[in-house]
């Protein structure tokens, strides 16, 4: 039979040492910093390219119908919104000061972050898809007058088919997966939060 003091002695006799040195940490900091910056840069670059192309098409093509101009405004707004969300989330996840919060408050932050991401990936993505579909729909109105019937029909069927496939197949599957994941995470986080609750225990528990 060992008492707690004996366990303490075992603990202090352990020779397990970390395999990471301070140089390893600094190396990883530099590598990760570049990794984050690059990922963000690629996303920003891709979206800026898409926006520039849309603006170029808008300026260089002599669109006559108001529906096409509306389509362009909707599509550019969607791209700008996506860009804003990505940058905002990146800044939020990089906010290191949250790590200094009390564990209970930090768990609260993790819960709200997960819920927000879930809303973004499900409800907001749904709205985003609707707007993009309307954008394409308005765009094809003028195309129908300019191009041949077959080109218009093929273009519309392909675009709408893809949007419907994303919405009804990929999106549904994705939402189901996200829901399960979120439920698991929230349960875990709530269990952790319960452990840190500061209610005084009963005297007879001592």
């Amino acid at each position: 039979m060992k008492d707690f003091e004996a366990l303490k002695n075992i603990w202090h006799n352990q020779v397990a040492l970390p395999k990471v040195s301070h140089e390893d940490v600094l190396r990883k900091v530099r590598k990760t910093k570049n990794g984050f910056a690059n990922k963000l840069l690629i996303e920003l670059f891709g979206m800026c390219l898409a926006i520039s192309m849309l603006i170029y098409v808008w300026i260089s093509s002599p669109f006559k119908m108001w529906t096409t101009h509306l389509a362009m405004v909707i599509m550019i707004s969607c791209c700008l919104y996506y860009l804003y969300i990505q940058v905002r989330d990146y800044i939020r996840i990089k906010d290191e000061s949250l790590l200094l919060n009390k564990p209970e408050e930090y768990i609260d932050y993790l819960k709200s972050y997960r819920s927000d991401r879930y809303i973004l990936n499900t409800r907001k993505y749904k709205i985003y898809t609707w707007f993009l579909s309307f954008g394409f729909l308005f765009y094809f109105i003028e195309i129908a007058f300019l191009a041949s019937l077959w080109v218009t029909v093929i273009g519309m069927v392909f675009t709408m088919g893809w949007i419907l496939f994303c919405y009804f197949v990929l999106m549904k599957r994705y939402i189901r997966k996200e829901e399960l994941k979120l439920e698991d995470m929230i349960q875990d986080l709530e269990r952790l939060q319960q452990q840190f609750k500061t209610n005084e225990p009963n005297e007879n528990q001592i």
Binding site: N101, P103, L110, R114, M185, L189, L192
Partner: peptide, 9 residues
């Protein structure tokens, strides 16, 4: 501690 708690996710 907070890093360990995030690890559970």
């Amino acid at each position: 501690v907070n890093t360990c708690l995030s690890y559970l996710r």
